Simulated scan of single mutants.
Amino acid sequence: MVVWERAQPPTRPTPTPLSREGIVRAAIALADADGLDAVSLRKVAAALDAGPMRLYGYLATKAELLDLMVDEVYGEMIAPPRPPAGNWRDALRDTASRVREAALRHEWFADLLGGRPRLGPHALEHTEMLLAALRADPGFGDIDTVMSAVRTANAYVFGALRSEVTERRAERATGLDERQWQQANGPYLVRVLATGRYPVLSEFVHDGTNLAPGVAFADGLDQVLDGIAVRLAR
């Protein structure tokens, strides 16, 4: 039986009462502070001042714990509710914005995006809301067209967020933000570009616009949505 359908043990009057919700909150706090490597049943139990074996009454494996953590974050995306999206582009933009906000609050969440569909109640509700918004738009003739658009948008969003989170982690690991990193590596890059072997890259370095992360994310998403719109118009 999957964890979503498995009942919790009855509450016991112990010095440290447990619940599945409390276990998940403790695990998220550990992951927010130190990443997914800091999450184990033993460490979560220690954070709750409980014996590790007690946790097995609420979940069977670390994989189940990660599923519960991910679903808790999906719950953050659907509450508080926002005004309904006006059209399919608005719906995909709003969803992408929610996912990005969640990933920047919980960087570990970006590591768990993608793969097999998430089947927790919050994840299912999140998916249903998005699919329903696109399915109601007359531009989408059938459910396969809806799913194709969602997969395409998700592929961009998940990849862009992993890149953004990786950059944030690099800043913390090196102590250098993006501008400081550029200054430290600038002299080397100037020498390399001066060889003339990389003319287009040189044009980008000298003349390209360095967009802020949020702006770059929105710009890339708009390019993806433009491509979906062209396909729908065929």
Rank of each mutant, 00 (worst) to 15 (best):
A85P: 01
G22E: 15
P81Y: 05
A218V: 06
P15T: 14
Y56T: 13
L55A: 12
G114L: 07
A47S: 11
A91R: 04
A31F: 09
G86D: 07
N87A: 04
D94K: 06
A160D: 01
R20W: 08
Y198F: 14
P84C: 06
V190F: 12
N185F: 14
T145N: 12
Q182Y: 10
G208D: 08
L30S: 06
M147E: 12
R20P: 10
D49W: 08
P121Y: 07
D67I: 07
P138R: 11
P213G: 02
A229Y: 12
L104M: 07
L124K: 07
R172S: 06
A63N: 10
F140I: 11
V70M: 10
L92P: 06
D32N: 09
W181I: 04
S19R: 07
D222I: 02
D71E: 05
A33P: 07
L124D: 01
D177W: 06
F140Y: 09
M53T: 15
W88V: 02
G208H: 13
I23F: 08
H122N: 14
R168L: 12
R12P: 03
F217R: 14
L193W: 01
F109T: 10
I228E: 00
D137H: 08
D142F: 09
G139V: 03
A133E: 12
A229W: 12
A218Y: 02
R89P: 01
D219A: 13
T166D: 09
R135A: 13
T152Y: 11
M1L: 06
L232W: 08
R231W: 12
A123G: 00
A136N: 09
W181V: 11
E125M: 13
L189S: 12
W88I: 04
Y74R: 09
L113F: 08
W108F: 14
V3W: 02
V99W: 00
A29D: 13
T14H: 02
A50Q: 03
G220A: 13
A173P: 00
T14P: 03
A27P: 00
D67G: 05
F158W: 10
A218N: 10
A155T: 13
E21M: 07
Y58E: 02
A170W: 05
A160G: 03
E5P: 05
T61P: 00
Q223W: 12
E178T: 12
E76G: 04
V215L: 10
A50G: 11
G51N: 11
L59C: 04
L92S: 02
W108D: 00
L41M: 13
D219M: 08
A26F: 02
A160S: 06
A91L: 04
E164W: 03
A47G: 13
E107V: 05
Q180Y: 10
G175W: 03
R191Y: 03
V190G: 08
E101D: 14
E167D: 15
T152A: 15
L41Y: 05
V146G: 04
P84I: 09
P84H: 08
F140V: 07
D34Y: 04
L161A: 04
G186Y: 13
P17A: 04
V24R: 00
T166P: 01
M69Y: 00
A79N: 10
N185P: 01
D142G: 06
